[in-house]
Simulated scan of single mutants.
Amino acid sequence: MKVLRFGRVAAVIAAGALALTACGGSNTGASAPGAGSNSGGSSRTESLSGTITAGGSSAQANAQAAWTAGFKAQAPGVTVNYDKSQGSGGGVTNFLAGTYDFAGSDAYLKPDQAAKAQEKCGPGGAVNLPVYTDGVAIIFNLKGVDKLQLSSDTLAKIFAQKIKSWDDAAIKADNPGVTLPSTAITTVTRSDGSGTTQNFSNYLHQVAPGVWTSPVSNKWPIAGSSAQQGGSGVVNTVKAGDGTIGYADHSSIGDVKAASIKAGSTYVAFSQDAVTKAIAAAVTPAKTTVAGDLSQDIDYTKLTSGDAYPIPLISYDILCTKFKDAKQAKLVTAYIGYIISDQGQKIAAKNAGSAPIPADLATKISATLKTIS
């Protein structure tokens, strides 16, 4: 699927949102407070006014651009400012500091962050709402090679810098019949705190523990890579090089080539359907003490079938259970309610290439939104 570039999304979506509203649609769950029906516009959103300030996950960037434009068509009095430059780590930091109404993050809050959220939000703390599902793409640029297959062990060895050149025996074994040059491998990673990094390092930690001995972290743990700011920095650096390989949310990769990743005995390419199947097979609710929190854990070791993409990604919008300003709570819950609606998820799927969240999860998020004040 061709993904629209960030700067072009708003104009396209404004028209698309109106078209979807006119066509209607089925509900994925109950509507959020002030959000109206999940299938289209409502006078309740049309009467809203104010500004929402948020930011974080660059993985959500294209989706947030689509959601912002689509919501603006329903609620012309509301301005949503989402800063994608912060990355998940910066988004959470700014949210906890009180700068953002909500944070976008590809990882749910850690225990120490959840404790800090109670200081900002009150005893109820903050909830992690999984609004966006996609996949971590392994992108590469290697002269003369258009298709690439990689097993988890080979991938771990490449990013652990134990494999140094593209004609290594392990890469050849994954790609029979492919002529691989002796070009040196340049790994391209994130320099900022990144939920995408945390997801990818968690994948390597789970599926290749004998190779990947570094901790799961939102900071890249191994020196010697080409470290870049944001997902766009990784994509642009891979695209500009030769022998480069990196990781990024699939929605951001544009026309850069992505490898098929081995699951069981099959190499699986990214697709929305393959991500949906991965989420169904490998995701379970995480342990939490916060009422309404919907953090999810991914067991990557369960993804051994040929129809599930092995590196799915879940991204969250994180917000307080109780806002200091009731009007701001109404604005944010209306916007998140739009995001998880059928219309919001369809717009994200069309313009970011993401996989729609499961209907039962949308219903649970709607229930949580009704408790926020």
Results as ranks from 00 to 15, higher is better:
Leu129Thr: 01
Pro130Trp: 04
Val131Tyr: 01
Val131Thr: 11
Thr133Ser: 13
Thr133Phe: 09
Thr133Gly: 06
Asp134Leu: 08
Gly135Pro: 12
Val136Lys: 00
Val136Tyr: 02
Ile139Phe: 07
Phe140Tyr: 14
Leu142Phe: 11
Lys143Tyr: 11
Lys143Ile: 05
Gly144Asn: 15
Val145Met: 15
Val145Cys: 15
Asp146Tyr: 11
Lys147Trp: 14
Leu148Met: 15
Leu148Glu: 07
Gln149Cys: 08
Leu150Arg: 10
Ser152Asn: 14
Ser152Trp: 08
Asp153Arg: 15
Leu155Ile: 14
Lys157Leu: 15
Lys157Thr: 14
Phe159Ile: 13
Phe159Tyr: 12
Phe159Val: 12
Ala160Asp: 14
Ala160His: 07
Gln161Ser: 15
Lys162Ala: 09
Ile163Arg: 00
Lys164Asp: 11
Ser165Tyr: 10
Trp166Met: 07
Asp168Ala: 11
Ile171Ser: 08
Asn175Tyr: 10
Gly177Arg: 05
Val178Pro: 05
Leu180Thr: 06
Ser182Val: 09
Ser182Asn: 12
Thr183His: 07
Thr183Met: 07
Ala184Leu: 07
Thr186Tyr: 01
Thr186Gly: 09
Thr189Pro: 06
Ser191Gln: 07
Ser191Leu: 08
Ser191Cys: 11
Ser191Arg: 02
Gly193Gln: 10
Gly193Ile: 04
Gly193Lys: 05
Gly195Pro: 10
Thr197Ser: 13
Gln198Phe: 07
Gln198Asn: 11
Asn199Gly: 08
Phe200Ile: 12
Ser201Tyr: 03
Asn202Met: 04
Asn202Glu: 12
Asn202Ile: 07
Tyr203His: 11
Leu204His: 05
Gln206Phe: 12
Ala208Glu: 03
Ala208Asn: 03
Pro209Lys: 05
Val211Pro: 09
Trp212Glu: 09
Val216Gly: 01
Trp220Asn: 01
Pro221Glu: 07
Pro221Asp: 10
Gly224Asn: 02
Ser225Thr: 03
Ser226Gln: 06
Ser226Cys: 05
Gly231Trp: 00
Ser232Thr: 07
Val234Tyr: 00
Val234Ile: 08
Asn236Val: 01
Thr237Leu: 00
Thr237Met: 01
Lys239Ala: 04
Ala240Arg: 03
Ala240Asn: 01
Gly241Met: 06
Gly241Val: 02
Gly246Glu: 00
Gly246Met: 07
Gly246Ile: 01
Tyr247Asn: 03
Tyr247Phe: 06
Ala248Cys: 11
Ala248Leu: 03
Asp249His: 04
